[in-house]
Design a protein around this nucleic acid. Structure first.
Lengths: 353, 353
DNA sequence: TTGAAAGCGATACCAA
DNA sequence: TTGGTATCGCTTTCAA
């Protein structure tokens, strides 16, 4: 038979409350009694208060759920995500809280819903989950605090993010100022069943907030420079990975009308673009200009011009918003700064032919 | 008032069990009734079954705890750990299980114990937690399945690892074959309050299994080559980070009797050693040879000679051992292969002076 | 197909 | 300081 509080209480000859106190409130009973209880517990093989029972009774779980799409392994592959998680972890730790990582497949809505429902947590952090995903609506009904990685002041969920649109406008303007007129874009967002580069024709139909904002920003700059937006090819990579970026970029680079600049929506994708260029002996910033977004550590080694956005801080703030929310709801939307970082991957367009 | 199962049951005019079934066993009641229940629930703002209550009742948590030392943020900084986590996540996902990350500070044993006790999980994966750490003994009393990242067939806890001793012997022998006789070692293990490089004099006193095995392997090779072990300096870095490696290496490189080879116990440390060498315009493999352990992705870019050990697979297997343990206890100890990878950071010792 | 009753294991409050 | 009692919210027989 499994030992429980009761078992110990009976063995020592005290009540359950006393045994409970021995564990959770040492100051509520005399030291000798406490020690006797603990000793008996050890003898009986009582493992200490049952976590789930305790959690049920106290109404606190001591953990927050972190939602990702795709299988969670991708999260660990993206340096930006890793940094973000790091911040999250740092600040969760200060609140004596664990991180429950919840990988949500997007094929299997059932299982995603189950995972979210079964999670014993005090709140959720939604990291880059597309708007159409079932978990989003389930989450809303759960009544637990939620924080997203988006800055949307009008939303009811707390969030921390950057002005993706403005930032992307800046980086695209940088290219326009160099004189680029034949630009192409490699975006990345989750859409049901896209396993290879897909052309994006309608920005408003992009089902992920962040990706949409970035594309809008790029369009702002392009149109602002007097270029016809319909001449710009936008490809959506199949995943936020170097390989996917390379695959998408290959399609762009092998066209007869090769673009003079490629705007990648993340650094990881941009590195893939550079890979594809290397395959073809094209030099970044000379033959074709490339830009990224995030400024992950690798970016500088590759001389990638990009937008820097805080990663660790974003995680820290997200956790803070969840675990110690500011009283004024207006303060639950945090806008972080971004910065254009110019390196060697951008330059003037080469005149060809 | 918060809506609960009872609330919904009363509203619909059925019993709690029926409402419960509507959620967890759709086949146990008629579809129309089920829909009526779900609709009413939505109306009443009932969030669905309470996760903690459910977990208590069912005796299953749907998550496994992952224990780290130091603040968890380090885990995300070490590429090897990240890969391991990835594997863990992959296989946890297949079992519909989440990962509860538990960062354990080693200063605060109280809080570490609390975290482990409060974790609502079905088992624990112990990643590189030193033997002296309080959580280890607490864990043992909890009665939950445990898997460690160590291969110790005689232990009672399941584990998956490599033969660190043999692997390290191999890499050290490689150096001895080049003719190195003045070697130094940079190790890394958690010890209470070491915040700067500390000399290790007694291998048997090293409180972490893995680190100990690696040092033993190095000693095997060194002694086997006829070198007096007492002439070999072993420094323990303050953390498994590049910076810590650099700091430790600096001490070794600035000696008048500079070693001709430095054996680092992890790749991250080895990269730090290379950093320190760069600071002094010393060329890896020419002026001083350097070796690592792990073969993280960066290793090849730096031409680091190292030991390759599986990272993702190790995680996959660890999770499997936890969530679907083989019936035969003997199979709960898995030994993974390693391989010596020779690159440009090792070469013949330079004759100086 | 539905319902009644019995826990799962612990904590909080209040009285002694 | 210690103990009794109610309760957290759900699932699970078993009988109807």
């Amino acid at each position: 038979m499994k030992a429980t509080l009761q078992t110990v209480a009976d063995a020592v000859g005290v009540s359950r409350s006393t045994v409970s106190n021995a564990y959770s409130r040492p100051d509520q009973l005399s030291t000798p009694l406490r020690e006797r209880i603990l000793a008996t517990a050890a003898e009986l093989g009582y493992p200490g208060p049952h976590a789930a029972a305790r959690s049920l009774r106290k109404g606190r779980a001591g953990a927050v759920g972190v939602l990702f799409t795709a299988n969670l392994s991708y999260a660990f592959v993206d340096p930006y995500a890793v940094q973000f998680l790091r911040g999250l972890a740092e600040s969760a730790e200060r609140h004596d809280t664990g991180l429950l990582l919840l990988p949500l497949s997007h094929d299997d809505a059932e299982s995603a819903e189950r995972k979210v429902r079964h999670a014993v947590v005090d709140g959720f952090c939604v990291y880059n989950v597309p708007e159409w995903h079932r978990s989003r609506s389930v989450l809303a009904t759960l009544g637990l605090p939620i924080v997203t990685t988006e800055y949307r002041p009008q939303a009811d969920q707390a969030g921390v993010g950057v002005d993706d649109r403005a930032a992307c406008r800046t980086v695209a303007e940088h290219l326009m100022q160099w004189g680029h007129r034949d630009v192409a874009v490699v975006s990345v967002f989750d859409a049901p069943g896209n396993d290879r580069p897909t052309e994006v024709t309608d920005i408003d139909a992009v089902p992920a907030y962040e990706a949409r904002q970035r594309l809008l920003g790029i369009r702002d700059a392009v149109v602002g420079a007097g270029v016809d937006w319909s001449t710009v090819t936008v490809l959506n990579a199949s995943a936020n990975s170097r390989d996917a970026g390379r695959t998408a970029a290959s399609q762009l680079l092998d066209r007869t009308a090769r673009p003079s600049a490629i705007i990648a929506c993340t650094d990881v994708i941009a590195l893939g673009v550079i890979d594809a260029m290397n395959d073809r002996r094209l030099r970044p910033g000379v033959d074709v200009s490339v830009t990224g977004f995030d400024d992950i550590p690798e970016a500088s080694a590759y001389g990638l011009s990009t937008i820097r956005q805080p990663a660790v801080d974003r995680g820290v703030i997200a956790a803070e918003l969840l675990l110690d929310p500011p009283p004024d709801p207006a303060d639950r939307h945090v806008l972080l700064p971004t910065e254009l970082v110019i390196r060697s991957s951008t330059g003037s367009p080469t005149k060809r032919r």
